[in-house]
Amino acid sequence: MLEALVFLTILLGFFGIILKKNLVMKIISMDVMSTGVIAYYVVFAAREGLFTPIVGDVSKGPYADPVPQAVILTAIVIGFSIQALMLVGVMKLAQNNPTLESNEIEKSNMP
């Protein structure tokens, strides 16, 4: 059930990117889709009964691999920086155009 909700979040973001015409709404939809992909990865990789690999008095047994955690943290940081860069691009477009609707910007910039 949780996987279906996460997949629905990914689809919601995907269709938002395709169907919305406002550039800020496209950026928000991309962020929703990115969050869904990260949540899907976390749900898929979660396992019960694994120990955290920290040096100490823990008995030997199956432990959680820290590499997927590092990959997810990297994906979050990269997603945040891409979102910030896209918002700066939209701000630059807003200086030259009276609207942020993509089809209106395309019409005004046609030769």
Rank of each mutant, 00 (worst) to 15 (best):
L8P: 00
M25A: 14
M25K: 12
A94L: 01
K21H: 09
E101I: 14
L100E: 05
I54Y: 08
V90S: 06
Y40I: 05
P111E: 07
P98S: 10
M25S: 12
V32C: 10
R47L: 11
L50Q: 02
K20A: 15
Y41H: 05
V90C: 04
S102A: 15
S108W: 08
V43A: 14
V32G: 04
L5W: 04
R47F: 07
L2R: 05
I18S: 05
A64L: 10
L5H: 08
G16Y: 06
S108E: 13
V77I: 15
K26D: 03
V58H: 00
F15W: 12
L11R: 00
G49N: 10
A45Q: 12
G16C: 07
I28R: 09
T52D: 01
V24S: 06
L12D: 00
Q69I: 14
V43K: 07
K21V: 05
P66H: 02
M110Q: 11
L8G: 11
E104D: 08
F51S: 08
I54M: 12
K92H: 08
V43E: 06
I27C: 09
N96W: 10
F80W: 03
P68R: 04
E101K: 10
V90G: 03
F51R: 10
I38M: 15
T74Y: 07
I105K: 03
P68E: 05
K60Y: 10
V6W: 01
L93T: 01
S108A: 15
V43F: 10
P98C: 03
P111V: 07
A39L: 15
F14T: 15
S108K: 14
L100T: 09
P68K: 03
V37I: 15
Y40Q: 08
T52M: 09
D57Y: 08
N97L: 07
V42H: 04
L93D: 00
M25T: 09
I54T: 12
A84Q: 02
L50A: 00
S108G: 10
T52A: 11
M86G: 04
I10K: 04
A39D: 04
V88L: 15
A64S: 11
D65R: 02
G89P: 06
A70M: 15
F7E: 12
V6P: 05
S34D: 11
T99R: 06
G61R: 06
F44T: 15
I105S: 03
L73R: 04
E106K: 13
M110W: 12
M33F: 12
L85E: 05
I72V: 15
V77N: 06
D57G: 12
T35P: 00
L5A: 13
K20F: 15
S81Q: 09
L2M: 11
F7I: 11
L23R: 06
L19M: 08
T35H: 08
P62F: 14
G49I: 09
L50D: 01
V24A: 08
L85W: 06
F7M: 11
S108T: 14
L11F: 11
G16P: 04
I17S: 04
I76E: 02
L50G: 01
A75E: 02
N22Y: 05
R47I: 09
I105D: 01
I38Q: 07
N97A: 08
Y40P: 00
M25H: 11
N97E: 13
K26G: 05
M33P: 05
G49L: 08
T74S: 13
P68W: 05
F14N: 14
V90Q: 03
D57V: 12
E101R: 12
P62H: 08
G89I: 04
P66R: 01
I54S: 09
L11T: 03
P62S: 12
A39M: 15
